[in-house]
Design a protein around this nucleic acid. Structure first.
Lengths: 348, 348
DNA sequence: AGGTACTGTGGGAGCGCTCCCAGGTTGATG
DNA sequence: CATCAACCTGGGAGCGCTCCCACAGTACCT
């Protein structure tokens, strides 16, 4: 399979050695200049820099990686079921943030989709084969063995989102509780008396948090939390539809719904239309994520926006810290929670 | 920046040398077994395989890359304006296809977002620094210098989509003309008499093709192509709105619109609603791309689906061919056009 | 028996870099 | 003026692999 792939001839690039010769210094010195070591005299540095410019020298990163035993690359891992969600602005924004921050650090971004067990297996081998310096994990499930594997082989890693309240691995998350709370407060503030919620699967921490936010807002308004107004779904459109029907059956008098994801809000909206209920006149609707779906709904959906691109950037910064402090057995695992923002549109 | 990142200690992995010692053979022989060379006796091969298994040997790909002067990696490049479109299923599907096919070939996927000129510059250096064996270019503009640069440095590359009818670089495209034609034929087949179209920017080849398809279908139905029924837009929602208004002003009697992208169809749909026109009753609407937007419109949008994931896979296959035939100065550049499929929904 | 033609195999010679040690300078200090 | 630390600097060693040359072994001709 690997076969005999060979690179083309290509006038061979100058090497460190040649730069050294040209500058009239030793290899070590050139290396120091290239890597910005302070232990080089200005005269020497200038000479080397000139030789580099004249020869158009570009370090061979493969050689560097081999010699220094690092990869200069970071893997962004997207586990199976999520490769679908890929199309969400969420991922695209994460990637944009990650890409930008990695570019600044001069690291490569390896995109790894883990779909089949075979691919998982192969990825594990990559890890052992020292192909990456660290791993960014996007939306791993609570039962995914990957984070533990990474911990075992001491591979620096950062999660997007927590798996539980007591997440041990470094992570960057957004303020799910606060975002949900502000969404529900917004509804109450607009005079809605009976605010229901469609939650995600409650075995997912993110869903739990958003429900907590809902509860907090209701209580902050001096109301009782009515279990009849809470229906769990699964973050899908169909789930949103089912949950909405259930809610209308239980409490036909409801006048607002906070859905824990835009897609579920879209499902709920369909059911409302079917039943002749107007949005926002009869029922106000708020989602979470501020995805494309939200903007294209009719009326456009009010939603809680995550600063996703910033999450991506933050993940990289956290990962770099982790890599830096490799070995130093400090148990301080950096964990970060970023704010959310309510985007008001026609649906509320 | 690069600093002193060092890998953790980590019980060092076995090397080729150790495997050789264990199997009682030479380094070369182990290498041959690992790489599936046929010039190894069965007895030896078995012995080596056993040693590999016992030691849990995994080849160090960095060392391999250095020695063999290849990178075992391919870059997927997404130039600036497009990083926005990222969220489209189009990209996500391309990436899924590319990822799957690369995994099979045991190559790494490097994701490269080219946003700033600085990033472009840096990328050019990667190329020279032998970090990748080939490049996949997604939606490059006709005036992007990248394809030419790649050609100049003899870096294998494949485009998604042609830049013009006479594309010289290897590419994989979908049948834009045929897709558009089938969409318009569908509208005519449903009894629509006056079918208009909203095109993309006509300096883009893809927009040109879709318009050609529209024309072909109209003519195939024995009708004249009426220039008043053709309005150019820019693939944006706002452009779709403007174009729809223009069309309704020119030909208030139109009863169908083929928009060359889903997003423009979404814009058109808004204008139709504003003007009290029902979809599909008064005006039937068809888009192109079959993106998430299409499914979430009201009514759901009929659209032309591209087999995008397959395009990704095909791009990789083409690229591998190109890499394989490096140096052999055959002028046969592989170029591929994949079929499209009309997905019928409520809007027509 | 000597030649010719394979096939299998070992291991030297790198790939281009970083690491690190030893050695040479310099300037301040006792 | 000797001493010593602080600083630069050159270059050997080596990262783990592939490439390729040389050589032994076997088989089949003259």
């Amino acid at each position: 399979m690997a076969g005999t792939r060979r690179r083309g001839v290509g006038r061979s690039r100058p090497t460190l050695e040649e730069v050294a010769a040209r500058a009239g210094v030793g290899r070590g010195t050139v290396s120091r200049v290239i890597n910005g070591s302070p232990r080089v005299s200005d005269r020497t540095r200038t000479a080397v820099e000139q030789a580099v410019a004249e020869l158009g020298y570009v370090p061979n990163r493969v050689a560097r990686a081999l010699a220094a035993n690092r990869a200069d690359a970071v893997a962004l891992v997207i586990p199976e079921p999520e490769t679908r969600l890929f199309a969400e602005p969420y991922f695209s924004d994460i990637i944009r943030g990650v890409g930008a921050e990695l570019a600044e650090a001069d690291l490569q971004l390896l995109l790894t989709l883990l779909r089949t067990p075979k691919e998982r297996q192969r990825f594990a081998e990559y890890l052992s084969a020292h192909r990456v310096d660290g791993v960014l994990l996007v939306s791993v499930h609570a039962d995914d063995p990957l984070p533990d594997l990474l911990e075992r082989i001491e591979m620096p890693a950062v999660l997007s989102g927590r798996r539980s309240a007591h997440e041990s691995v470094p992570y960057v998350d957004c303020d799910n509780t606060g975002g949900a709370q502000s969404a529900v407060e917004h509804l109450i503030g607009r005079g809605r008396a009976t605010v229901a919620t469609i939650t995600g699967p409650l075995d997912m921490y993110v869903a739990q948090c958003r429900l907590d936010g809902y509860r907090a807002a209701i209580q902050a308004a001096g109301q009782e939390v009515d279990p009849a107004l809470i229906v769990a779904a699964d973050f899908t459109e169909e789930g949103g539809r089912r949950a909405m029907r259930e809610l209308l059956e239980r409490r036909p008098d409801l006048d607002a719904v906070f859905a824990a994801s835009d897609v579920m809000a879209a499902g709920a909206r369909q059911v409302l239309r079917e039943q002749g209920l107007r949005v926002p006149d009869d029922v106000a609707l708020v989602g979470f994520e501020d995805s494309a779906v939200a903007r294209h709904m009719d009326p456009p959906l009010t939603s809680v926006r995550q600063t996703t691109e910033e999450m991506g950037r933050a993940m990289v910064r956290v990962l770099l810290e982790e890599i830096e402090s490799q070995g130093e057995r400090t148990s301080k695992r950096p964990q970060l929670v970023l704010p959310t923002e309510l985007v008001r549109r026609g649906s509320s």
